[in-house]
Nucleic acid binder design. Structure first.
Lengths: 196, 196
DNA sequence: CCTACCGATCGGTAGG
DNA sequence: CCTACCGATCGGTAGG
């Protein structure tokens, strides 16, 4: 009965997930022990298991939360009545926003997913592959409509996704530019440079 | 006296480093045990220590081998008598080549360096920071000489480096394009799109 | 190169 | 929520 009730920061489980995200990012999933996490949360290690099922389940929660965010935004954007160019721009800006706002979680989803257990690992990879395919189709459409230069759409999509993912590594350069400047410059480099 | 003599693949230690690179990439440094490595090499775990000092030392060897390659190529390119544009293009192509030829090692240097111990960790980060600064200076020169559009040179450099690093994640798409096509398309997207 | 083995730490459970 | 504790596995050493 000494349970701490849901605070403004969410339920106890939410706190655990947030602390786990930060630790998994900085130390890596494999190198983070449940004792590390317990210290970060402020309890003894076995107490964590009143809120979560396993270490692995924490990773699943983080990875699929992020994957689902990207998937559902992409669908929303696809269904809009707008030019291909503005759709692609919207997706790029969404990536940058999520990256800046949920840094730890995105990093973990991008780099620690390999520690997912089956069948979650396969599900995650399928979801990611499907995301990439939709983007490739979008770029192909843009090439057809002459909005984009002719190119190998796979290379184009992967170049963009790579550059965006790399954002994770930059936060140490935070002082050198504002988020807004970063976003606009990057959109400019990746997108406008690509338009015929 | 039952030592296996240096084969065409290099010394015993070279083999260990190559196998370690592959394991550190696929499983991660922390999740790779010396028993895993021993199996991969074909000996018992304690035998590894006749050739190496520690698990940590293996990581150092890998990370600094790659860092040194990039550093020395950058210096070579900087000293050439050529346009800024062609220098930057040469650097981009070098990144792509090293990535394709030493995939495991580059991946480890890019993602597992955080497990380096001090003072190696600090040295590695200093070397990387210095590399980035030189690239920023190069882009700044290119802006001054009007070879490049005006931009925040930090964002430009980091966008390029991010996109290049992302190459690591693509090898699963190998069938969709040849290395040469990949290289040319990417140079085109990153570079020509950037030129005024 | 191997066998035998060490102390430390891991994820997780029992039980209250 | 805690204490007590488990079997498994870790990096590495001793000794030959």
């Amino acid at each position: 009965m000494a349970r701490i009730k849901p605070a403004k920061n969410g339920t106890r489980k939410d706190v655990i997930i947030r602390k786990a995200s930060a630790l998994f990012r900085t130390k890596g999933f494999a190198a983070t022990s449940m004792r590390d996490l317990a210290i970060s949360v402020g309890v003894e290690a076995p107490s964590l298991y009143n809120h979560i099922g396993s270490k692995s389940e924490l990773l699943q929660d983080i990875c699929f939360k992020i994957a689902d965010e990207f998937t559902s935004q992409l669908e929303k954007t696809e269904n809009k009545n707008a030019s291909v160019l503005s759709k692609l721009e919207e997706i790029i800006r969404f990536h940058i926003h999520v990256m800046l706002e949920e840094f730890d979680e995105v990093f973990v989803a991008n780099h620690e997913w390999k520690y997912l257990q089956e069948p979650h690992l396969a599900n995650f990879l399928n979801q990611r592959r499907s995301y990439e395919k939709k983007l490739v189709a979008l770029v192909e459409t843009g090439i057809t409509t002459n909005e984009f230069k002719k190119s190998n759409p796979y290379v184009t999509v992967l170049t963009i996704l790579s550059a965006l993912r790399g954002l994770e590594f930059w936060l140490r350069h935070k002082k050198k530019f504002s988020p807004k400047e970063l976003e606009n410059e990057m959109v400019d480099h990746l997108l406008k440079g690509m338009v015929r």
